[in-house]
Design a protein around this nucleic acid. Sequence first.
DNA 1: CTGAAAGCGCTTACAG
DNA 2: CTGAAAGCGCTTACAG
Lengths: 333, 333
Amino acid sequence: MRSSLKDIAERLNVSIAAVSWTLSGQGDKRRIGREVQKRIMAYAEEINYRPNYIAKGLQTGQTRILGLIVPDITDSFYSSIARQMEIDAEGRGYSLMICSSEASQEREDRLLSTFRSRQIDGVVIASVEVSDSKMKEIFEESFPIVTFDRLLPNTPYNSIMIDNVEASRHVTAAMIAAGARRIAFVTTNSHLQEMKDRRRGYEKALKEGGIALDEDLVCDICFQEKEKATFALFDEMRRRCPDVDGFFFATHVLAVEAFYYFHERGIDVNERYQLGSIHSEKALKAFAPQMKVTRFPVENISREAIRIVVECIQSFHRGEYRKPEHLVLACVD
Amino acid sequence: MRSSLKDIAERLNVSIAAVSWTLSGQGDKRRIGREVQKRIMAYAEEINYRPNYIAKGLQTGQTRILGLIVPDITDSFYSSIARQMEIDAEGRGYSLMICSSEASQEREDRLLSTFRSRQIDGVVIASVEVSDSKMKEIFEESFPIVTFDRLLPNTPYNSIMIDNVEASRHVTAAMIAAGARRIAFVTTNSHLQEMKDRRRGYEKALKEGGIALDEDLVCDICFQEKEKATFALFDEMRRRCPDVDGFFFATHVLAVEAFYYFHERGIDVNERYQLGSIHSEKALKAFAPQMKVTRFPVENISREAIRIVVECIQSFHRGEYRKPEHLVLACVD
DNA sequence: CTGAAAGCGCTTACAG
DNA sequence: CTGAAAGCGCTTACAG
């Protein structure tokens, strides 16, 4: 049977308050007799008492739960983020509720509503949404929000972004330094700000290398049909630009698809092309170890996101206004 | 400002109960006037009322939250499971709390304690533990548990397992059918029951193929140091058994490591060896498309796990005893 | 048929 | 200094 403070109080013939104070470590402060405190602690230990966080949450208005929403938990970048944030949140006494929006705006809205009903203290989100109406509504009356990876235009939320322009420029420049001149830029969802930035970085590196941009080398793949699209667009690109000598993937997911294509077409990609990618995966490293890769700073993103959301919660509860932070982190490797 | 039933009741000059009944759809049953119901619903809509699940949970004793614990959320198998279970749980009106035990028994115990304090309704777990004392303690007094992937000895919990013997036999047999005779068996954590089963399947297929087992071809890699261990053990194996003509990986994670090794050593694995693996990954398929692979039935595992845990919760609340289920599912592909 | 009232398990302001 | 009592926001048994 689960036991409550009341059970302990009755059994020991003391007040519920005395038990509560003692168990929360404020026994001395509240001048509960040392003897009484000892009896309470011993008995609580004996019956393996665990406080009911639900009751606590109703009373205090804090659940000490943080929500995390990512577009796809099976994406290795997001699952690494989830793992790290769970650990960082725990370090500050919070649990993490990890949810996958499946890149659906409707699902994302639903998750935010659930978070609100569940009285979650704060949310970290890589949002797929464009209009951001739901989030705004919730933000204003429910909990602090930190966005990461995806930047919403004119965001009133805290945000953590990667310097996508520089990351992309860096990788492209490394490919040029290794001899590539006709580098294809393979992207997807190119309406997203971070994808626009990656393209800008690519163009910047070309310019710095004295290479003219050729729109024929830019390849925008439909994410929902990436397998088919990759085959069609790559076949066409190779026909149109037979002199292509490098491929730069705006995200590791596209690299995986491309490798599948190259393999099917019997192309030894390591021999023929310079390669570059934003993010990578263990398995890719095994097959294309010389690929130029930039790794997102998962540890920093996580640490900063949790720090900010927790600080916001604290300000929120003290009724203080806290100016949103907008961090831009550098990539590593 | 967040509003409560009380706010609505005061504003509309009706009882809190009337609001509660109406909003939970029992207005007619409780004979609340149709007119009153309409006013309540309209006003609730207007102020965008959302019930406080914490208060509801305290009252009803059900949080409608399920916990999921996996050893490593960045493992593609577990992240697929997590994604599917989140969707299946939602379909039954539950939220999922996804946690990663980082393969640590101590962390796993801590997560279970947190679940208990948070009054979670039920747990699905791929447990890393051996002694299972903590889980037993919690199971008896707190919530139903469904284990999957990892089988605990003499388990009193519901369990969902894969037929590892058959999965392994099937893959090995396919490699033999393709011409392999000297197949290395690459395993890790071989003390785990499912790893023992995979080895049994391998041996069974050899026997059926009339091939003698050679212990020199069995390679047990230390999971914590898998990169180093793979290099050392594979070098040694190739020296000791230069006639090895196939590699069967007891889990996809080892396959990734091995491919890294092969690449470093300049070995064209597709030309030289037959390959087989339990689980795979998109990226592996790109590089070794002819590898014999068996896929775990993620959808079935998820569906059955959620079904069982929800049924248990229902029985639990009705005070009924429910005999634990022990499912064994077949692999696919 | 209907609504006031008790209670879920906590925390903490407040009176003695 | 200490403990009884109110209250967090719901649900539902129970009295009228």
